[in-house]
Amino acid sequence: MGTERIAKNRRKFFQTSAALIGGTIIYSLIKPFEAIAQTEAENSKEGKGNLPLWGMGVDIESCIGCGKCAEACKMENNVPKEPFYFRTWVEQYTVKNDGEVKIESPNGGIGGLKQSVPDEDIFKSFMVPKLCNHCTKAPCVQACPVGATFISPDGVVLVDETYCIGCSYCIQACPYGARFMNPITKVADKCTFCYHRITKGLQPACVEVCPTDARIFGDLRDKKGDLVKFLQDNPTQVLKPHLNTHSRVFYNGLSSEVK
């Protein structure tokens, strides 16, 4: 009789504690998904028309490899001047007559790219500006263990400098080599489409200084804008399409040798 009562008390105790524990665990599991549900609700609430979706077009047929974009970017964004840290850079491809492809980017192209193969050996040659592709399905955002890098609601992949722990996983995950570890701030760093400029109606610094309009920045949702016109007028490609990153930097004139 007494044991029955004790057994009942024990049972009640177990039931309550199981409920408590179960509840806490379920709550802590649901919380992260809450954020995702919230985002979807926010997205549909705001409506696609309100926020821009930023992208960039690169016209390889216009790029002259002067390197001013890379230089301006470093100045505008306080990137260390040493040749190991680039938010954007320009590559020179020289396809030789024997089929060998030579790729160069000394100091990221700053100071102008110089020809290094004699004319008679060249089959074709061109310049390719590179930068963060602000992928809609960014592998770097997927990889960040703490949520320090993210895609803003207007489509720019940004880094939270106060939150990044400096593990470099995002740098490993980026297929385009667009990220680097900033030696001063010790956090992951990369092109931000000059977020501080575009949110004030200015163009990114690299677009501002390009003498041949090889970089076209704009809103993919603006049907009358320059970028959409560029995409409609030219056959454009993205880098490494087989990786399905949904990159929002579109190249016109991308030759198959480009890595």
Binding site: I36, Q38, G147, A148, F150, I151, S152, L158, D160, T162
Partner: peptide
Amino acid sequence: GKYGHYRADAI
């Protein structure tokens, strides 16, 4: 968590 798995103030 406001817009996604990141600190919204970072924007």
